[in-house]
Write a protein that binds this DNA or RNA. Structure first.
Length: 748
DNA sequence: AGCACGCCGACT
DNA sequence: GTCGGCGTGCTC
């Protein structure tokens, strides 16, 4: 079964006087009933305006009314929006996500209706056409060359054009066009804006693939149109995963279906877009938080109308109203950025699988370091596995070596071991580029007073303030600022210690990328460095510019946080130094080892992807750790086997289910009281265990105190039902919220 | 999410 | 005596 067909004809319409359920984009418990107004016909999926209290709200016809509310209390639907109905798959998907995440259905719908303006009537634009019946003396208007060019453009039955387009194409000012209008030679007409942006074309052949790639590509393409199937596309960096899944994209386009590609950080994927354009001849539609409101509206409409054929986006693109979706690709499927932690808490990768299943379409999960969940699903046969073993072309996998910081220690106040320094020297000497990776923004993660030991802490969060000293544009040092990385709290480093009032005698403890850059500049004064951290590289423009600088070899050394770990490809980059490989391993999180492995593996993949062999140096204090051993030996299989065994024995995901319940509020005592109530009401179920309440990993964030429960259950158990009963048993007082996180990423 | 109703402090 | 603070609760 290939189809998810959503033709509105499949669903019975509702006539005047009938009761319909309308789901509103509000966090209400469910859909509300309304009466269909006289002369109105509604079908499920229609976007409608309804009265709500003394205001108006927009929602979607969800189906027949429930009939629980008195007919006398029913209000009438006010009107239907001029937009294609929300497809049935989208509606079923919203319901499914709501049930799974325990979020109100309207809150999920809101994600699908994130652009209210998209439902407004399309504004006609004023276009200019030839005025055929030129009368009287207007015919004698002087025809300058510029005027001639404008009239020529519209001569011969071409479509009316906007003022701006005419002026641009005729290479004249807009005044020429308005002049012709005044002179009566042109007239204005209202038209619907042209919606014919170039769309990707799957017809052209892609680049030549290796045998293994070709086989994988054909298998993926063969699955398009053949119903729901999950394929895990597992291949080392540079193995050509993208080109392989592009084949499936091309096939879906050939079949006239839409395609959704989810990427973890769309804002930073200029290279991905270039590759896509090279392959398909046009840019795909894009969907991410940085879009301008106008583009957002146009993209939403183009998707809903089926005009946009391929959309690449961040997790929220999953809720776009595709009427003809035929393929989903989740690239870098292991990325934790797919997890939405606020509002409706969901994992876009998992929900994408659900969306594919509901739509009866294939989905491809691609990664060089697949999540343990996906690996296990492939092993048990739930997912198909396509493995791309070798690197395409001449590139070799980088050589990974460990630097034991216990014996190869840097000088005090320095963070680079002698070995890493030497490697940097060699790399610069040979005209290659290097990258230093440190997953810590700012100058120093902790500042303390040398006199009294006072540590600067965020007033709103349980976290140290991070010192930032970023240089101003003119190269002068800004005054140091102290920043909270959790709530954005921001203050100048004071001149006196707030605790002992001693004159500014502060010590910056530990390195961030800014401090590392300072050390490197002192050690290598002649090399050109670039800092890459999310506070420096804000948005696609800055990211694109950095990529361009590196590609053009305008910098010798990139110093970056995890934003440089993503799939960039820099041919001249031959050395990657990981300054603190152990950073993610502390804290006792059960996923810490897996995530550290994935991150460092991806970072290592930045080295030597073209003809030049790369090498990777990991600075670590625990070279015997399984993560370090797996990276150094390249034996991923053994690492995965060990992790899998540990998870299975502990009954942890994917072998058991997990949910977190977080109680939060501004008043710690009330939060504790609610947590105690929950403790008393906790489920006593066979195969279900509950831990907590414990302070959440960040006991206070943004001024809210947080306590956390962890609920584990064997796989067949319906945790949603248990959680619903449990949470329904307590009624939190003012300000206290109870939030559920199904499949939490971190479970400290 | 809004927008009401509701019950306690400083103003014309 | 009122204006207004935002805490609680409802919206078919």
């Amino acid at each position: 079964m290939a189809d998810s067909s959503d033709k509105p004809s499949g669903e019975s319409p509702f006539g005047p006087g009938e009761r319909v359920a309308v789901l509103l984009a509000l966090p209400l418990a469910g859909a509300y009933d309304y009466r269909v107004a006289d002369g109105m016909t509604l079908a499920p999926g229609d976007f409608v305006d309804v009265p709500l209290g003394r205001r108006q709200a927009t929602g979607v016809v969800w189906g027949p009314g429930h009939g629980e509310v008195d007919a006398a209390r029913l209000k009438e639907v006010l009107g239907v929006r001029p937009a294609p109905p929300l497809p049935g798959v989208s509606r079923r998907f919203i319901d499914w996500v709501s049930v799974y995440t325990l979020a109100p259905p309207g809150a999920v719908l809101k994600m699908a209706m994130s652009v209210p303006a998209a439902l407004d009537p399309v504004k006609p634009v004023i276009a200019y056409a030839l005025n055929e019946n030129v009368s009287g003396e207007d015919i004698f208007v002087r025809l300058t060359p510029a005027r001639r060019r404008v009239l020529d453009l519209l001569d011969g039955g071409g479509p009316p054009m906007t003022q701006a387009d005419l002026a641009r194409e005729a290479a004249c000012g807009v005044a020429v066009v308005t002049g012709l209008l005044k002179a009566g030679r042109l007239k204005t007409v209202e038209t619907v804006p042209a919606e014919t942006s170039a769309e990707p074309d799957g017809g052209s052949a892609g680049p030549l693939l290796s045998d293994a790639q070709q086989a994988a590509a054909e298998q993926l393409a063969a699955g398009v149109g053949q119903g729901f199937a999950v394929t895990l596309l597992d291949g080392v960096p540079g193995s050509g995963k993208t080109e392989v899944y592009f084949h499936a994209v091309a096939e879906a386009l050939e079949q006239g279906r839409q395609v959704l590609v989810l990427l973890p950080e769309i804002a930073l994927s200029a290279q991905w877009l270039d590759r896509f354009e090279a392959r398909f001849g046009a840019r795909p539609g894009q969907w991410h938080s940085d879009l301008s409101p106008g583009l957002r509206r146009d993209t939403w409409r183009a998707v809903a109308a089926g005009r946009s054929r391929v959309v690449v986006g961040a997790r929220s693109a999953l809720f776009l109203p595709f009427p003809e979706l035929g393929l989903i690709v989740v690239d870098e499927e292991h990325e934790s950025a797919f997890k939405q932690e606020e509002g409706v808490v969901y994992n876009a990768r998992d929900m994408a699988v659900v969306r594919a299943r509901l739509g009866g379409i294939p989905i491809v999960l691609a990664s060089a370091t697949p999540s343990l969940e996906s690996v296990v699903n492939a092993e048990t046969g739930r997912y198909r596995l396509l493995h791309l073993p070798e690197r395409h072309g001449a590139a070799l996998l980088p050589h990974v070596a460990l630097i034991d910081m216990r014996s190869d220690a840097p000088k005090s106040g320095s963070w680079l071991s002698p070995t890493l320094k030497t490697a940097l020297e060699e790399t610069f000497a040979d005209g290659s580029q290097a990258m230093l990776f440190l997953n810590r923004r700012g100058y120093a993660p902790l500042t303390l007073c040398r006199t009294c030991g006072h540590r600067f802490q965020c007033p709103n969060c349980t976290a140290w303030l991070v010192e930032h000293r970023r240089r101003g544009r003119d190269g002068t040092e800004d005054a140091s600022r102290l920043v909270c990385h959790h709530c954005g709290f921001n203050t100048r480093l004071p001149e006196h210690c707030p605790s002992c009032d001693g004159e500014g005698n502060f010590a910056a403890c530990g390195p961030g990328v800014e401090r590392l850059a300072e050390e490197v500049r002192a050690a290598f004064p002649d090399i050109r460095t670039a800092l890459a951290a999310s506070d420096v590289i804000s948005g696609p423009k800055a990211a694109g510019e950095l990529v361009r600088q590196i590609e053009a070899h305008e910098v010798d050394l990139v110093i970056g946080t995890q934003i440089v770990a993503k799939g960039y490809h820099f041919p001249m980059l031959t050395l990657v130094g990981v300054v603190d490989a152990d950073l993610g391993l502390s804290g006792g999180d059960l996923r810490a080892a897996e995530r550290t492995y994935q991150l460092l593996y991806q970072v290592a993949g930045r080295a030597g992807r073209a003809k030049r062999p790369g090498r990777v140096l990991l600075q670590t204090y625990m070279p015997e750790h399984s993560v370090m051993q797996a990276l150094a030996s390249g034996d991923r299989q053994r690492f995965i086997a060990a992790e899998t065994k540990a998870r299975r024995e502990a009954g942890m995901p994917p072998f058991g289910r997990l949910a977190a319940v977080i109680v939060s509020g501004p008043d710690a005592r009330r939060v504790d009281a609610v947590a105690a109530d929950l403790r008393r009401a906790q489920p006593a179920h066979e195969g279900v265990w509950v831990l907590g309440p414990a302070p959440a990993p960040l006991a206070m964030v943004r001024g809210r105190h947080r306590r956390r429960f962890l609920l584990g259950a064997a796989r067949p158990i319906n945790v949603q039902a248990i959680l619903k009963t449990w949470i329904g048993a307590v009624s939190p007082p003012g300000g206290v919220r109870i939030q559920v996180d199904i499949d939490p990423q971190s479970f400290l």
